[in-house]
Amino acid sequence: MVHKSSVPLHWRMQKSRYNLIGSKCVTCNTVFFPSRILCPKCRRKGKLESFQFSGKGEIISYTIIKVPPEGFEKNIPYAIAVIKLEEGTNIAGHVVGDIENIEIGKKVRAVFRKIYEDGKDGLIHYGLKWELEEGNE
């Protein structure tokens, strides 16, 4: 996948990918992640502002990937979940830690991790993954 090595792509995504910054429409109070430049509900009547998410959320569904796409061969098996963020929108995220015990309803928090290594001499992409919170039953 050629574009994985693209510096501009990862440059553009830095803010959201490293800091969990999305957007909030102050007209209808809806939050979005990743950020949007237009509120799909209010359209031109909406006003979007930058919004920092806390990085806390809950798993609403998950899968364990055993057959990966190109570039993720070394990671298998790995867990991907749909996470409901505390502030009220969903995100797909890579869950790390004790994935044997992953379950719907468990709490997770965002952590900074390596996402993808583009070969031995290519770019290393960092970003947010999700760790199961301690004290989950």
Binding site: L9, P34, I65, P68, P69, I80, A92, H94, I115
Partner: peptide, 14 residues
């Protein structure tokens, strides 16, 4: 979604 699904290793089966 290339930027927010594919980039984390999601597949269509996923």
């Amino acid at each position: 979604d290339q930027e927010w699904e594919s980039s984390i290793g999601l597949t269509f089966t996923g």
